[in-house]
């Protein structure tokens, strides 16, 4: 059982969390100017790196989305932080 530190609640078990998205992958907008390839890449092409990965997860218990940097090979959690502009509110 992995444990992730929610920036709002602290260390909790992995069953309380969901993966949400790769970080740094903004939604392409407006739709009329987005090519089919770009849209397909946004939806379906994931980097899935071996090693350090930057991801957005949600702590379902508190409902907060946050950034997590972790090593997909060793499963070490390197850092978590609130989304920009959401810390300390």
């Amino acid at each position: 059982m992995q444990q992730f530190p929610c920036p709002f609640c602290g260390l909790r078990e992995e069953t309380e969390f969901h993966f949400a998205a790769e970080a740094g992958k903004p939604r392409p907008e407006p739709a009329a100017q987005v090519s089919a390839d770009r849209w397909a890449a946004y939806l379906y092409l994931s980097a899935a790196p071996k090693g350090e990965a930057h991801e957005i997860w949600v702590h379902r218990s508190c409902g907060e989305f946050f950034l997590m940097t972790r090593n997909t090979e060793t499963r070490a959690v390197l850092a978590t932080q609130a989304l920009p502009g959401r810390a300390g509110e």
Partner: peptide, 19 residues
């Protein structure tokens, strides 16, 4: 609820809308 919550946190100032 999760779709609303994700969009809320991703796109809106957090005190302008609650789910």
């Amino acid at each position: 609820r999760m779709i609303l919550e994700e969009a809320r946190q991703d796109r809106f100032a957090s005190k302008d809308v609650f789910v």
